[in-house]
Simulated assay, not measured.
Amino acid sequence: MHNNDPHAPHDAQGENPDVEAGNLEIETLKLQLSEQQALNAELREANLRDHAELDNQRRRMQRDLDQARRFANEKLLNELLPVYDGLERGLAVETGDVASVREGISLTLKSLLKIAENNGLVQVDPLGQTLDPERHHAVSMVDAPGAVPNTVVNVLQKGYVLNDRLLRPALVAVAKGE
């Protein structure tokens, strides 16, 4: 007689095929789980390395940016040193007539303007031009016989443009209309 009770103990000759299949499936799942855990650990490690590398790169870039800011004016200041030296030499001269002092100041100013030009600074001297509110600041309107209305007849302070961007508008007086 054969016992069909699933809860009955098995005979010693062989195991139930359902149990064997279940055990095989459990072992396969355990193997897959351990593989996935190993892969997960590798991915976590790679993620940590990438994160650390990004942090290091961010710090390097910040350090480079700080250095660039600190020394951004180095070239300009190096070009200004001869102007500074010329002014000091001019002040050291005890004797001299006004004409030679004036000539020295004129040469120093030309040198300074050339350095500024080389670094993108352009002077705005609008004398005789039509008032441009984008580049000129009218501080007064004056009677100017023979001048076209809204024309700059006097420049009180020159303006400056740095690389096509207005740094300071020119302060001007313009001709009144009739």
Rank of each mutant, 00 (worst) to 15 (best):
S100L: 02
G128Y: 04
S111W: 06
L81Q: 14
V19K: 03
T151K: 02
L43S: 13
R58C: 03
V93T: 05
R63F: 12
Q37K: 15
M61F: 05
H2I: 13
A46Q: 15
R49E: 10
R44I: 13
L121R: 03
D18N: 03
D64L: 11
E20A: 05
R89L: 07
L171M: 12
D132I: 03
V172T: 02
L112S: 09
L80A: 07
N16M: 03
Q62R: 08
A138M: 01
L113T: 08
G146R: 04
M61Q: 00
K176R: 14
E42T: 15
L48E: 12
N119A: 00
Q32L: 15
L29P: 06
K158E: 14
L127V: 10
H7L: 14
D66L: 10
V83W: 04
D18S: 03
L91Y: 08
L127R: 08
V101N: 01
H136Y: 09
L112I: 05
A173C: 00
R58I: 10
S106N: 06
L54A: 13
P6R: 13
V148T: 10
P145T: 00
E134L: 13
G86Q: 15
D132F: 02
V98W: 03
A8R: 11
D64H: 05
E20P: 00
V139E: 07
V155F: 01
T95E: 11
E27S: 13
E15R: 08
K158N: 15
A173H: 09
V174T: 04
H7W: 12
L166C: 12
S106P: 01
H136K: 08
L112W: 04
S111R: 14
Q123M: 13
H2A: 11
G90A: 11
V148C: 01
E74M: 06
G96I: 00
E94D: 09
E35P: 06
V19T: 07
T108E: 06
P133G: 02
N4I: 13
V172M: 02
H137L: 14
R59G: 06
K110G: 11
A38R: 12
Q67V: 11
E53G: 03
V83I: 15
V155N: 01
V122D: 08
L54G: 06
E94K: 10
Y160R: 04
L171T: 05
N163G: 12
G120T: 01
K110E: 14
N154E: 12
G22I: 07
R89P: 00
V172Q: 01
G159E: 02
A41V: 04
P17T: 05
F71C: 06
Q13T: 12
A147L: 02
Q123P: 04
V101E: 01
S34E: 15
V124P: 04
D5Y: 07
A41C: 03
Q37E: 15
Y84W: 14
Q57M: 03
A138P: 01
G159S: 06
N150A: 01
Q62I: 09
S100N: 02
N56W: 02
N56L: 07
R70L: 10
P126N: 04
M1R: 11
D5G: 10
L33T: 14
R70M: 09
E25W: 08
